[in-house]
């Protein structure tokens, strides 16, 4: 069971949210090759550890935002709005991934 801190509404139960997959960074330019588009559209890091992902508070404010979550422990480390800079999580990665096995 996840409790997700929506940046607009505060902590709510996971049942109110919709998962939107990994937060992708840059859309390739229109002239990008098929391989580059394929990588952007389909390939995912899918890490066993910390991941930046999008969630939508669909049964609340209906806003999209980003969550930094650990995929083994499910612990949420940070939440940030669309357009905000990614929080610095480098210092967390190794220890948490180790702890999660």
């Amino acid at each position: 069971m996840l409790t997700i801190p929506c940046p607009f509404c505060g902590e709510r139960d996971e049942a109110e949210f919709r998962y939107g997959g990994e937060a992708l960074e840059e859309i390739p330019p229109a002239e990008a090759s098929d391989a580059e588009w394929s990588d952007y559209l389909f390939n995912r890091d899918n890490p066993k550890g910390l991941v930046h992902e999008r969630w939508c508070h669909s049964y609340g404010c209906n806003q999209w935002f980003q969550v930094v979550r650990e995929t083994v422990t499910h612990r949420i480390h940070a939440v940030y709005k669309v357009g905000e800079l990614r929080p610095d999580i480098d210092h967390l990665d190794g220890a948490e991934a180790q702890a999660g096995g």
């Binding site: 997959g21 990994e22 990588d39 389909f42 995912r44 899918n46 890490p47």
Partner: peptide, 18 residues
Amino acid sequence: GHTSVLAARAGLRVPITS
């Protein structure tokens, strides 16, 4: 379920979500 993890060790990204 660990295909992405192993593929990453070989330098590959794959279209998978676990």
